[in-house]
Computed example of a mutant assay.
Amino acid sequence: MKVKCVICDTVHDLNDNDPLAKKLRNRPIHTYMCDDCYERIEKRTHERWATGHFRPYRSPKSDEEW
């Protein structure tokens, strides 16, 4: 199965029996992101968390969580 990264637009081949390929095939709303882009976003997110000024877009369970 050929998939395209949503960020860098590179095309990758996935094994048809791979669980990720099955997920993308059965649920078209899910998108594919290559390992390089995923690691880059993960690294930058952790850097923002470390600053203490990063606020995730989650609904707080109580006002004390913010």
Score class of each variant (00 low, 15 high):
R27H: 13
N15H: 01
K43N: 13
W49L: 12
I41R: 11
A50G: 07
R44L: 06
Y32C: 12
R40A: 15
T45W: 05
I41S: 12
N17L: 08
W66D: 08
H30E: 14
T10W: 08
L20A: 14
C8K: 01
K43A: 14
K2I: 05
D13V: 04
V3I: 01
A50T: 05
E64R: 12
V11N: 03
W66Q: 07
Y32T: 12
R48V: 05
R27W: 09
C34L: 04
L24K: 01
K4W: 03
T45V: 09
M33S: 07
T10V: 11
V11W: 01
Y38E: 10
D63Y: 07
C37P: 01
T31R: 15
I29E: 14
E65F: 04
M33Q: 10
D63G: 13
P56A: 14
V11E: 08
V11K: 05
K4N: 09
C37E: 01
C8I: 02
A21K: 01
S59P: 09
N26T: 06
P19S: 10
D13F: 02
K43E: 15
R55Q: 10
A50C: 05
K4Y: 04
D35I: 07
K43W: 11
A50H: 07
V3Q: 00
E42R: 15
D13E: 15
Y32F: 15
Y32A: 09
Y38P: 00
K23G: 07
L20H: 08
L14Q: 02
D16Y: 02
P56K: 13
M1K: 06
M1G: 04
E39N: 08
P28S: 10
K4P: 04
S62I: 03
A21I: 00
Y32W: 13
P60L: 13
D13P: 00
N17Y: 07
N26V: 01
E39M: 06
H12Y: 08
H30L: 14
R48I: 04
H46F: 13
D18A: 11
M33P: 00
N26I: 02
Y57D: 14
L20C: 09
R55Y: 06
P60A: 12
N17R: 11
R27L: 10
M33I: 11
E47I: 10
Y57V: 12
L20T: 14
I29H: 14
R58P: 00
D36F: 09
R40L: 15
R48Y: 15
H12T: 00
